[in-house]
Design a protein around this nucleic acid. Structure first.
Lengths: 213, 213, 213, 213
DNA sequence: CATGAATGAGTGTTCATTCAT
DNA sequence: AATGAATGAACACTCATTCAT
């Protein structure tokens, strides 16, 4: 608060902002802000982003921002919750991947969604990894989501008769994450489609249908 | 935040601060500052770190800081140069990795150094990836170093008769990076030694001596 | 902090600002700020006063203010401590008041200091009464000081053979407080000297030498 | 704080809001707002109180508030007018206070109403003293009311054959005010009834029936 | 009459950087 | 070479007030 406070712990005004039940217009405005934030975060990075940047991108005012979010961190928290949902969704959709061309196609399509989602929520995910989201509960949500995703991969790998031990799955997810990062965060959009095709092939051959030596 | 104010790009006072030839005491003070910075960066992250934090950790004063560095970014730049050297060093040391226990041991020892180095310079590397180091030349140094490292891995993989195409090397380095990150940046010190042993085994089996299906 | 906090609870930076040991220049600057604050508070009232007002009155900068005080409330707290000291001082100086002209003179002189002190710290005292000073310990200091003052009055009244029960003392201090308030806070400086003389006479006759009916 | 922005002095929309003739529901809503304001003011103090606090306490909306009051200050002004009326009322009811038990009883009953009224309008009265009510006319109302009250006391003291010079009356009213303040504003509800009895006794003995020495 | 979303000027606070000693 | 006091631009956040519904 101006008058000697500007408090920003995760409660207080935060709760107030979160708990108010919104009508149509309110929900629309909040969406506009979230979306704008995601865009600006992606461009400038979370820490470099000013509330003013978000507000301008959303074509609204400072005051309006604080009508929906207690502060920048609260916004990140809300985005994180959204993101967790998206990841959980990804986890339920990992397709069965056969050793043939159909398997590759299925994989490629899935990885398309995967890349898109990861690209969309990239900053949030990184913020999570860098522990910027200080809310314990939300943190747990993230851990859960990523665990489920790993489990889903493991299950599909098992179905394919491929190695699916922890380290292998770790290597797979590491690869996916790093690729997404390379494709999305760098300005160099090194032909996302080509990258996708390559990635799909690599994962197909390297993880689902390991070539006999 | 004041982060953007008083910006002074790599020229001006920066040059002055860097080019001054230092005596023994001067060099010692600068080292103290660099070391402190690395420690604090690791704990808080680059952006969250205040010059004040560094100065306090180094038990010196604000004024002194600006005697050795043109500004916070200049410090990061100097650390990046150091880091590039360390990575280049790592690149020259990738050992030959045989399929037997000796190979595993050699690999494990190397990965130990690798983890240590990556752990030490973790923040700098991430800052690099997030394009915080705006100096073109220094950026190039980084790209070079990482390229050399990848080439060294590729060469050793080739020697072992293992797959060493770009994607495989990409997967390998992705795995190494992610593991280091997990081991060092998270507070969970999940027994670095055990992690090291596991990692070595995984890499040995998964990349250097792929099991025949 | 700018970066998403603006925390202002009574600890944290507050402690930092308070505990730093100051040199001559530092102490001088802090004094300049305290004095300026007291002046501006008196003119505008605590809540209406902006940090900017204080800073301008002290001919220094915003940043400097926060070098010495964690925030506006911390400043009030420090002034409160000072004020408590002044009141304690007043308590030790309540003179013996004889029934004659000398007694009146002694009383008048004392009330002069009393009015001056109360005038000086008026805002702080009122802030105390309105519970703006949220620090428990400092609050206690105030209660103590005022208690001591009341006890000192009671003792002198007793010496004079005048009634000195709690309510009488309460009436006496109430009268003093209200008068000070009237004399100092209102812009109407209804001739402070005359007011002082009247007050002294009233208190002398009404409390120390009650006329026989 | 935004406290000074959008100021609109007693004219303009203010007049509009005040002059509109209200129906039953309108009057009820306005009362709800006034009452809520008084309650919240008492708890937080005038300056700390946000329009939002009042509105929430009155279970209505921001928009509605500005339907009845031009702004926060206008609300205070309306309360002040109400309060002036109450004080005038108190002035007409100061009872004759005889030297016996009946006198004491009459006094005590009156002081009960007095305390209640002062407790109810405490914040308004203090706001008056601190010159927060900037409307000249309303200010005059206050001065008048308090003058009448003092005159009424003086008259009753005269009737009782007790001293009733200005300073004595000043001491009496000071005592009453301070006591009210102590009883009402402090959280310490030191048994209002007991306090009342004590106060009545003190005033009776000390002002109406001064003990012969 | 009533509502709650929107606004933005105003204010508190931070922190990179400079400078006198 | 070192210090720590000073600076002020940049930001986060608030809240009185307006307005479309």
């Amino acid at each position: 608060m101006a008058e000697g406070s500007h408090t920003s712990t995760s409660d207080g005004a935060g709760a107030e902002a979160r708990e108010r039940t919104l009508r149509v217009q309110g929900r629309r405005t909040r969406r506009r802000l979230s979306d704008a934030a995601l865009r600006v975060f992606a461009k400038r990075g979370y820490h470099q982003t000013r509330v003013d940047d978000i507000v301008r991108a959303a074509r609204t005012s400072h005051g309006t921002f604080y009508l929906y979010f207690a502060n920048k961190e609260d916004l990140l928290r809300q985005l994180a919750i959204e993101c967790a949902g998206a990841i959980e969704d990804l986890a339920t959709r990992v397709p069965a991947v056969g050793p043939d061309a159909d398997g590759l196609a299925a994989l490629q399509e899935y990885l398309g969604t995967f890349l898109a989602t990861y690209g969309h929520y990239g900053v949030v995910i990184r913020a999570w990894m860098e522990q910027q989201v200080s809310d314990r509960d939300v943190d747990r949500l993230g851990v859960q989501a990523f665990t489920h995703l790993a489990e889903a991969f493991a299950a599909r790998l098992a179905e394919s008769g491929a190695p699916h031990d922890r380290p292998t799955v770790a290597a797979l997810t590491a690869l996916l994450e790093r690729t997404t990062y390379a494709v999305t965060s760098r300005d160099l959009p090194l032909d996302a489609d080509a990258a996708l095709a390559t990635l799909a092939t690599v994962v197909h051959r390297g993880f689902f249908v390991p070539a006999s030596v």
